[in-house]
Design a binder for these strands. Structure first.
Lengths: 340, 340
DNA sequence: TCACACTATGCAAACGTTTGCGTTAAATTG
DNA sequence: CAATTTAACGCAAACGTTTGCATAGTGTGA
């Protein structure tokens, strides 16, 4: 860091006081237009760059948001972050990102760092390992607002942005039913995770509602909904005495692997088996047949998180303790479930 | 931001001076172990959190890196950022991210923000609109090191992390030739972008080297290498009097669309036409047949950028003006080009 | 002409941490 | 035992910006 031009330098050059310079550049009403122009001109010619660290220090406001995500290179999170950055940028906040790598230890370290970093607010998505959220409670004591998205804490009240996984799953399953499916399977995610449990329950609720039997043999359980696990599930389906005629998969990866394995097995999709995924990953528009799926509003989730967070930061007189915002999802019907 | 515990608070509580507290927590040798423990204990019980803004202000070091990428939700960039965050985290730096959205105007704004934010260093990938890099020159004046990756400036010397696009394209094309292809096509990216031009030239060089004709009819030009553009290119190939027997595509998206269009047209891959992509996107392992492609080392590019940047930040006595680091790529051979 | 209001600017303190130098007391040396 | 070193800690300034209050200068109305 070399010698920067400061307010004081400008002040000396113009025979003004630093306070006047500060106010002039801040467009303060008590400063005459003449001096404002004079100051601005000098600032431009000298290449003055305000030191926002000094400003933050004095103001006790950094205008920066801390983000904790499991991984940046997961498409869902990269979309959320994109939404966060976009909204934050428009509101003159900037965004500092940390990956927990799904490690509780690292998540705890990051919360410490964010506290020393004096961020004005925090957006987080919990790591898989995280059961208790005690390490987040310090933020409240420091008056730093906190918003969670997607994988949110269950053990304490907090601001949360979520989608309605139950209802989305219900809608997806209902769509299969309305398309004529009678034996509908489900590839489920790790049931210790709230959202995947909700998807399973939503699936079951739809079956119940339409008086279809819940057949546990048609429900496959996975650990992390990976592509390879999807392949295994698909093979298990193929080994059944009777195939399902529809499968609701808890994410797009497993849906894609089912499509591929089934097609290799000579099964027509959607004629013999209709498939619905979840998340609207890019691949869902490329796989053949194109995958019917749920748009989980990742980008909007980022925007909404940031909007809520900034409101919490800037609203002093808020009586609200915590808010939970649920975003609408959207069923995107494509070829993998279109029955004529 | 509520009332935080400061060094002064600890000092009063312990009847010590702030300087002693600071040194004790910083493990300074001139402080006795007894007081160090006493201070540490008090800090823990009172829940002292150091104010790193005040520290940054005093030290003129923020230990934060500014990142400018076109978009976060592009998989390549999300991988790079993941590598950046990972390496930075291990070295106690943190990472503030901005998206230029491929807008020169926004890119310029971001450089201004980063200058006021007093980041210790900057990693950037230029927007598509950026022709001149004058807005980056201020960083040099401020003594802030700068590293570019992928889309790097051509109009001024800077630290750059790149892959050898020419050689990678050469290798990919050579692989097709060695597999027996005689009529090899290329789907090219926007030729005003250096990397896509290099890929075209690498392709041509391989053909020349192996004495195959360069047939301009087999070279398709695109604007942004989108999936849809790939579909158009594929259709043009199909309309040719004679199909190519191999195609090197400048990215995976176009490669995937070619595979899909060709298969729909009843063409066997790789038997009739072998396909090679570029970037090793996740889809390349899912598309059938699996796509032969170039691993472009996105994560490592992020790591390498950060490693270089931190070295530039911490090495005071560097005589080196700028460095260009080229990473090795890797040809991943999969089914789309495996000829028996 | 005096009192007052208003305009435009300056003064000085404060934010929390770090660090060179000074100071004290104890330990060591000749 | 005096002189000197060493250990352990305090003093005070500095980083650049912001802001409440004071002040100087100008204009206005009675």
């Amino acid at each position: 860091m070399k010698n920067r031009i400061t307010l004081k330098d400008l002040a000396k050059d113009l025979n003004l006081s630093p306070s006047t310079i500060s106010r002039a550049l801040g467009n303060h009403p008590a400063i005459s237009d003449a001096t404002k122009k004079r100051v601005q001109k000098k600032a431009d010619t000298l290449g003055f760059t305000p030191n926002s660290i000094a400003s933050s220090f004095r103001m006790k406001k950094t205008r920066s948001l801390g983000i904790i995500v499991p991984r940046i290179d997961i498409h869902f999170h990269s979309l959320v972050i994109s939404g966060i950055e976009d909204y934050a940028y428009k509101n003159n906040y900037n965004v500092t990102i940390f990956q927990s790598k799904n490690s509780l230890k690292r998540e705890k370290e990051i919360t410490k760092i964010l506290q020393t970093r004096m961020v004005d607010g925090v957006i987080g998505c919990l790591s898989i390992e995280t059961k208790s959220c005690d390490h987040f409670k310090k933020f409240d004591k420091l008056g730093v607002p906190l918003v969670f998205y997607d994988r949110v804490p269950t053990d304490f009240d907090a601001n949360k942005i979520v989608i309605n996984d139950f209802e989305s799953a219900y809608t997806a399953t209902k769509h299969l039913i309305k398309s004529g499916c009678k034996r509908i399977g489900h590839i489920a995610g790790n049931q210790t995770t709230t959202i995947f449990n909700a998807r399973l329950e939503g699936y079951k609720a739809a079956l119940k509602k339409y008086k279809l039997p819940i057949d546990e043999a048609l429900i496959m359980h996975t650990n992390n909904l990976s592509y390879d696990e999807g392949v295994n599930c698909a093979k298990k389906y193929l080994a059944l005495p009777e195939l399902p005629d529809g499968i609701f998969c808890a994410n797009d990866y497993t849906a894609v692997s089912v499509i591929q394995v089934f097609r290799k097995g000579g099964i027509n999709i959607p004629q013999q088996v209709a498939i619905v995924g979840f998340s609207n990953y890019p691949i869902s528009r490329i796989i053949e047949p194109n995958l019917t799926t749920i748009n989980d509003r990742a980008f909007q989730m980022g925007e909404a998180s940031t909007k809520l967070l900034i409101r919490k930061i800037e609203d002093d007189n808020d009586i609200i303790d915590s808010e939970i915002i649920t975003l609408k999802t959207e069923l995107i019907i494509r070829e993998s479930s279109k029955l004529n």
